[in-house]
């Protein structure tokens, strides 16, 4: 399945040359979770502080669906998010 991904703030270093927050498309196996997405992107999971899917905050075990928009933030916005 295809999903739209946005990486913010210091996670921009995982997409060099692109402005942080610009969406890009990614192919993921059916049933993949946010945690799987983070793993595929090579982001250090301990640095992930908040994930949005379609504008709502979701936990790492959230199962993604075709066409979802996922936004991933490091701790720019708070120290105690999941």
């Amino acid at each position: 399945m295809k999903i739209q991904v946005k990486l913010f703030a210091s996670f921009g270093r995982y997409r060099p040359g692109a402005l942080p927050g610009m969406p890009f498309e990614l192919e993921l196996p059916e049933g993949a979770t946010l945690r799987d997405l983070i793993h595929q992107l090579g982001l250090p999971v301990e640095e992930v502080k908040v994930c949005f899917v379609n504008g709502r905050v979701e936990e790492l075990d959230y199962t993604l669906s075709e066409g979802d928009e996922a936004g991933i933030f490091p701790p720019i916005g708070g120290g105690c998010l999941p």
Binding site: P20, V50, G71, G77
Partner: peptide
């Protein structure tokens, strides 16, 4: 967050 990106660090997170 604030020292690096300034208060406008909020633009992307509010937009999300």
């Amino acid at each position: 967050g604030l020292n690096t990106y300034g208060t406008a660090v909020l633009i992307n997170i509010m937009n999300e």
